[in-house]
Design a protein around this nucleic acid. Structure first.
Lengths: 125, 125
DNA sequence: GACGATACCTATTGGTTTGAGGTATGTCCA
DNA sequence: TGGACATACCTCAAACCAATAGGTATCGTC
């Protein structure tokens, strides 16, 4: 009908191929509030050294999430050192649930595609 | 020490948080050779509409993989239209196996972290 | 002959991650 | 005393990838 453009270029895709750090941060912080430095190591440990997001990745991410309202932050002092402790807000929990759902979708979709290869041996070459 | 210090930014981390398109392309093409346009739709279909990588993502990726030697390409003509059919090389199969292994690692690590939340209810407040 | 589908392509933009820096305090111990 | 190291925060520049948006050309059909 209208001036063509039936090719809906809109973004239905999970832009979640990168956002793994975000999901992990939201999850770990929802398990227990932490400060940045702690979180960096918690990710490393909880993933069995598989995931190693540096501080240069985590700190900006925390700031972004806090600014977006998914995290609240509170500065405390412990032995002369100052820490910024982050906690997941209600909004953050919703966001987390959404991110998690998208991640699951991607994982299962990719999984199905990869599985597909296993039974494809009958393809006569 | 010396002057230049070519700021070499090497990546030790699984830079595989993004590379999903690459893995999917290698997998689908190893199931059966395809041309770009076909592949774009095959991804969409095989993933149940979950993954929708546009042509602007797939074509450059195919070129990159071909240049890297993971894919071989062959141009054919069908009814006046020309298609470039891609096929996974031996090198590409090795690359695929590696990518797949890394992906599995990431998936299971993230999975373990997400699972962790389910049994964390006993965390004494 | 306009339109939509097929089939290829590239360039620009935008968001993420990386790597490398920088500041400052506390602890250990020689 | 001071050096090394861990803790704890931060930011910037480069690199990377994917998304978007363009562009060309052929074919079938209405």
């Amino acid at each position: 009908m209208s001036t063509s453009f039936a090719t809906s270029k809109r973004r239905t895709n999970p832009d979640f191929l990168n956002g793994v750090p975000e999901l992990v941060v939201l999850e770990l912080l929802s398990q227990r509030p932490m400060y940045g430095y702690e979180l960096v190591q918690a990710i490393k440990e909880a993933s069995g050294e598989t995931l190693e997001f540096g501080e240069g990745c985590i700190y900006p991410l925390l700031h972004k999430l806090a600014e977006r309202g998914d995290l609240s932050s509170r500065r405390i002092d412990v032995g002369g050192r100052s820490r910024v402790v982050y906690r997941v807000t209600t909004k953050g929990h919703k966001q987390k649930a959404q991110s998690q759902a998208q991640w699951s979708q991607v994982v299962s979709s990719v999984g199905r595609i990869l599985q597909g290869g296993k039974y494809e041996h009958a393809k006569t070459a």
